[in-house]
Simulated scan of single mutants.
Amino acid sequence: MSARSAAPGSLALVESLVNTLDIRPGADALDTAEGRARFSLTEDDVPAARELRESLRAALLAHAGHPPHAPVTPLGDLLASAPLRVTVDAADGAAALAPVDGACLLSRVAAAVAEALVAGTWQRLKACEAEDCHWAYYDRSPAGRGRWCSMQSCGARAKMRRYRAR
Rank of each mutant, 00 (worst) to 15 (best):
A80R: 13
A70S: 11
V72I: 05
L41Y: 10
F39M: 11
E51S: 14
G76H: 07
L78F: 06
A49Q: 04
L56T: 01
A37G: 06
R36M: 15
R57Q: 05
S81Q: 15
D22E: 13
R57E: 09
A64W: 02
F39Q: 07
G65Q: 08
D22K: 07
L61Q: 08
L78V: 01
A27R: 14
G65D: 05
R53Q: 07
L61W: 04
L79C: 11
L52K: 07
R36S: 14
E51R: 12
H66C: 12
P47K: 02
L79R: 12
P47Y: 10
E43V: 15
G26I: 04
L78R: 14
E43R: 12
P25Y: 04
T73L: 05
L60A: 07
D45A: 12
S81E: 12
D31W: 05
I23W: 02
R50G: 05
S55D: 11
D28F: 05
G65C: 06
R57Y: 10
G76M: 01
D31I: 06
R57P: 11
I23E: 05
R38K: 14
A37F: 00
V46F: 05
D44A: 15
F39I: 04
S81Y: 00
L79E: 03
R53F: 07
A48V: 02
G76T: 13
R38M: 02
E54A: 04
H69Q: 14
P25E: 02
A70E: 12
E54Q: 13
L41T: 04
S55W: 12
L41S: 10
S81P: 00
E54W: 14
H69P: 02
I23Y: 03
F39S: 04
L60F: 07
S81R: 15
R57L: 08
D28Q: 09
P71C: 01
A49N: 02
F39V: 01
P71V: 13
R57V: 08
L41G: 02
E54N: 06
R38T: 06
H63S: 06
A49F: 00
H69Y: 00
S81F: 00
L61S: 10
